[in-house]
Design a protein around this nucleic acid. Sequence first.
DNA 1: TTCTATGCAAAGACTTTGCATGCTG
DNA 2: CAGCATGCAAAGTCTTTGCATAGAA
Lengths: 133, 133
Amino acid sequence: MSRPEILGRLRQHDVLPTPQRIEVAELLLKKPQHLSADQILDQLRGNGSRISKATVYNTLNLFSEQGLVRQLNVDPSRKFYDSTTHVHHHFYHVDTGELSDIPEHQVGLMKMPSLPAGTVQESLEILIKVRNK
Amino acid sequence: MSRPEILGRLRQHDVLPTPQRIEVAELLLKKPQHLSADQILDQLRGNGSRISKATVYNTLNLFSEQGLVRQLNVDPSRKFYDSTTHVHHHFYHVDTGELSDIPEHQVGLMKMPSLPAGTVQESLEILIKVRNK
DNA sequence: TTCTATGCAAAGACTTTGCATGCTG
DNA sequence: CAGCATGCAAAGTCTTTGCATAGAA
């Protein structure tokens, strides 16, 4: 994903592009993946960046609010950020903590439940936990 | 749920019944619900119990390991413990943080994805996030 | 007695916040 | 200049752990 593409994505989501936000976006958006704030910080630092921890957290919160990435609550100990925002589902490998995508066409719902009164649906996620055979 | 029933449930799951474990089980198992460790501590303390925070956490971890309750990772800030262990799914109200059960017959899966190589399925959970209309 | 559970406080992991500094429009 | 972003450290949550005491088998 090229620099101009990154800038475009940020602007589409009303995120002012700053050097740090561009760094985070370049890393996270370059492929479908699931990374925690700390993993992102480590990788950026490993690449020589001097971005601060607070900025990584702030940036990821901003990206999530603006719909640029999706926050996943699966691992009880930390949040993961998903670079793929269109509807899809996940495998969670409980032995390794790894998350992976379930190809969209591989699951399908037969019927939808009626929602609690006075509410509208925000999302629907399927999580399949797996472990080593 | 009567005292002898509670004791039976604990023994069925190889949990030695102690006064504190019985307290926690009586509170959590009395109806289908989703409570966090802190909510349980507060309620027990409110009822005059002097159980410690560590014991509540230890007990809930033990109950989960033994399959007596189910741990839910939905709210990024805390774990919830579900007194209903059979397969069922959840609504999560993002405005209030409330969790509720989706009646089992109200959802159905059309097809199951193939699992990652070398893994077996541990569970499948559907989470529907809703917000106020 | 021997093993396990409990309670307390301290430690730990992850995340957020306050505030001064620095950049951007 | 005004407003927002950044960095650092401190503070905050939730949870786990170490260790001494207490209880159960």
